[in-house]
Write a protein that binds this DNA or RNA. Sequence first.
DNA 1: CAGTGAGCGAGCTTCCGCTTGACTT
Length: 727
Amino acid sequence: MKLVIVESPAKGRNIQSFLGKDYKVLASMGHVRDLPKSEIGVDVENNFEPKYIIPTKAKKNLTLLKKESAKAEETILATDEDREGEAISWHLAEALKLKDPKRIVFHEITEDAINEAILHPRKIDIALVNSQQSRRILDRLVGYKLSPFLWKKISRGLSAGRVQSVAVRLVVDRENEIKAFKPDEYWTVQAELCKCHTRESGYPENAKLTLDSRLHGNDNEKFVATLVKKDGKPIEKLDIKNQIEADEILKDLENSDYIIGKVEKKETKKNPFAPFTTSTLQQTASNKFGFSAKFTMQLAQKLYEQGHITYHRTDSLNLSETSLEASKKFITEKFGENYYNFRKFKAKENAQEAHEAIRPTRPVITPESLGGIDAKQLKLYTLIWQRFVACQMSSAIFDATTVDIVASRHCERSEAISTSGIASSPAPRNDGEYTFRASGQVLKFDGFLKVYPTKFSEADLPVLQEKEKLDLVKIESSQHFTEPPPRFNEASLIKALEKFGIGRPSTYAPTLSTIQTRNYINKNDQKRFFPTEMGVLVNNVLMENFPEIVDVDFTAKMEKELDEVAEGKDTWQKTLKDFYIPFAKKLEEKYKEVKKENTDVATDKICPECAKPMVEKLGRFGRFYACTGFPECKHTESLETKESKEVKSLNIDCPKCKEGQIIFKKSKRGKIFYGCSIYPKCDFAVWDKPFINKDGKSDFCPKCKSILVETKKGIIKCSSKECDFKT
DNA sequence: CAGTGAGCGAGCTTCCGCTTGACTT
């Protein structure tokens, strides 16, 4: 028996089926050794010697691997072909004490690919392993050196890191941009025009037309054009600054003739998107369905385990030969040959490409034919299936038309007369010639749109010819203001992180969680991120003292260095030394130089327990009132919010102790609940808001006399778990 | 489902990236 070790058990099951009973395929379940959590674990004095331990979570599995490896005639390391995968193999070899570890790699999970790989084992690429060690140790040094600095200078429990601190910075920067933004007023001018019927072109005598349509044409002969040029000069977005300027233009235009200038017709193409990577899947599922990145990954994990999709943590756009053949067959059979178009996609520059793009494992399994799975899983599968099939289909083709309309004043004498009364030489014609533009596009061939629904505007224009005269139906101007950039949501923040190469497919979702649980950023009602006071404060301290670490290019620079190590051009110790020596020196200075932040704000509140004044303090969960008699007096109060004031004003007596009142509270996790004001003397608490009847009083369950509550959906029910009363 | 702060000096907080599953909603 030969032992093969891969990273993921689902992948292992697959490979097992190809290799048969001479092989045993097991999974490492990710990394099996790591730096210890409780200490820095890097001997910076001794050439950055790392101290690796086996985390408790990995112990059980590693014991199994050891047992099987000892029994096996040989152990083959088949982890992913990238920096982290190479390192996992190396750690496995070390932990399993393999003498001559055999390393294999493959790019697609097919019988041929696996058998081929088994025939060509290689040695572990120690340079690649070393580049991973540099990455790991650098992240450890940054994180475990900067975090304690924040504990000392701001507050305990805070954190900083190469990835999370930049993510927070992006949100803070954006908020500052929004705050500093001054909207500019600008105006646009639109003309509603229609094919001319009342003049030269005329109408057939017998046409049955209403007076309105005789004057203004049918709806399908009307169209809207936007003012784009004045006297041959393009009008830029902010050129028309106010109503006075807009009115002047309107005045000019009311007495103008509208004649068609250039008519340009051309075909335009819309190409399908590339297949999904982790980041684009997360973005699209967020934008289309409102799924959080975390939820999308949970759904994808299940689809992967059930064998419906390929691996879901990837930055690759590669598609296996088999999947390409399958999609070709599917598309030509189902839609016809003209719908098929072979396409190859290139991943972004620093992608590691250890896997394929995310795609259905078997494209013939259409979403309709996939039964027995959860509705939301199916929704995600449908999206993945459509995106993949569409990416091998023809482009959609549109007939696009762009029409210029020239508006010039009616031909009347308008030569300038000099004050002396003598006609001057003809003045240069600057009498307000305006150009409008209208464009339309009509879908000619749907191509990939047949499978991947995409929003596009379709607007038809009437048949128009050059020099044709038009009637003006309506002309109007509209006021606009420039808008600040929008706050990030999950989709756009992940997109930004990926653009800068910050973070990896396996970390986008966890990173978003970390910076929210640290209370650096929060989501507003529109699910958009804004920084908290603590987020702003931490970011300011980092920006002021360690700008190079929170620079968006820090990771990109690190990656360059790591490449040098992976290519054997540089040692991992030198890379670390170049970074760490100046960093450590600076850190030492900053410990001395930077003062501890004081965020206390005096109030005129008096402590109800000891009569000392109270201050507003900034804690890890936001601001709160605290007694200045601390630590003798531990009295604290929450800041009043709209909700807490509202609940307090209802004066609901606690149904349990009848002594206290029900007040608005927040749990550790930030979840809202309603509890008794004299806690811990009385521990009454419910999740939902107590129901208030029309007399302004709380009410009780007719069945069991417990207090009634109103859920967020407006259902009134009994608060008792044993009672099922609800309306 | 009931936090947070200070400072002393017990022990603890903290990083990123690779995995899944055990929790709970």
